[in-house]
């Protein structure tokens, strides 16, 4: 084997349209080996399309790049054996048992002794004793574990996980992420798309994509800092009413309710101060200056790109 490249994914200018709808526009990304790279963005923003282009399931209309050192346009036959792709929708055979599914994957990748490989994977997954259960009968959390188990069975160098934790309970999500971190520690590169902010914060680096365009990337701290968003948290009565009034004011870019408080944010320090001034003195409300959270930043990015989109 050749020396493993230090860069797992390096693509530039990826573009993909379906009909007259451009789903991914001029997207570039750079993922280093052993990283957990979070891929965030609203529904329909092009995350799945990008992942599919990386593993050769879709052909980009424009752009070029490499995945594990192989050209994504011409060498997808070499990429496929070394990439584990976990689809958004469970895509193992529901009418096959856990064991049969894993043996199928092991045989397809040409692993030696597929029966033993499958047995070991079942033990690793904690599914011993249930190997004859049909995959379609498993609960959401177990399906996801099985799918991940099938992905890592052929020991890939890169994992592409498309919203792996959608609809999975918090405990299973935490276990899942612990496993991902364990795999990354062993040198596996993981690209994971998600909607959950807590998951984004568990990534080494993140990229935010909306309407096919990459809007921000870097570590969580870098992304928050680059948004340059100043945030206040306000609590008190009739917050819904207050939110409407604040939104109408100049200098406020985002108002979002969080339980019994509101997050109020703006990019311009002076304008924000001026805008909230009329309510600062109101004793019914408590104002605290807080750092922007990742979610504040994303909602702000999303609303801005939506404006551009329209």
């Amino acid at each position: 084997m050749t020396a493993a490249p230090e860069i797992a994914i390096e693509v530039e200018g990826l573009t993909k349209s379906f009909g007259d709808k451009t789903v991914v526009k001029d997207l570039s990304m750079h993922v280093e080996r052993g990283q957990i790279y979070g891929f965030l963005g609203p529904n329909g923003s092009g995350k799945t399309t990008t992942i599919r282009m990386l593993c050769g399931l879709l052909t980009p209309d424009a752009g070029h790049g490499t995945c594990l050192g192989y050209d994504i346009l011409t060498e997808s036959d070499k990429i496929k054996p070394r990439v584990g792709y976990m689809t958004q929708r469970f895509s193992l055979y529901q009418d096959l048992s856990i064991r049969e599914n894993l043996e199928f994957v092991a045989r397809l990748y040409g692993l030696a002794n597929p029966k033993r490989q499958a047995r070991e994977a079942i033990a690793r997954l904690g599914l011993s004793g249930r190997e004859e259960q049909l995959a379609g009968e498993l609960s959401g959390g177990w399906k996801q574990r099985l799918a991940l188990g099938a992905c890592i069975l052929p020991s890939p160098d890169l994992l592409l996980l498309d919203e792996p934790t959608a609809g999975v309970d918090p405990k299973a999500r935490r276990d899942f992420w612990n496993e991902i971190h364990g795999l990354a520690a062993d040198g596996l590169t993981v690209l994971v798309s998600t909607h959950y902010m807590d998951e984004a914060e568990r990534c080494h680096e993140i990229a935010y994509i909306a309407y096919g365009t990459l809007l921000a990337r870097g570590t969580v701290e870098e992304v928050i800092a680059s948004a340059n968003l100043e945030t206040w948290t306000v609590s008190g009565p009739d917050l819904h009413d207050l939110a409407d009034k604040l939104l109408a004011a100049d200098g406020i870019d985002m108002v979002a309710p969080f339980g019994s408080s509101l997050h109020v944010a703006g990019r311009d320090h002076g304008a924000l101060e001026a805008a909230i001034a009329p309510w600062r003195g109101d004793t019914r409300f408590t104002w605290t200056s807080s750092g922007a959270t990742l979610e504040d930043v994303f909602i702000d990015l999303m609303s801005r790109s939506q404006d551009n989109f329209q």
Binding site: G56, K80, P81, R89, F90, S91, L92, Y93, V105, Y109
Partner: peptide
């Protein structure tokens, strides 16, 4: 229709 094709195509076959 069952969505298994996406998985199959991503594998080396």
């Amino acid at each position: 229709e069952r969505g298994t094709m996406e998985n199959l195509l991503s594998m080396p076959i």
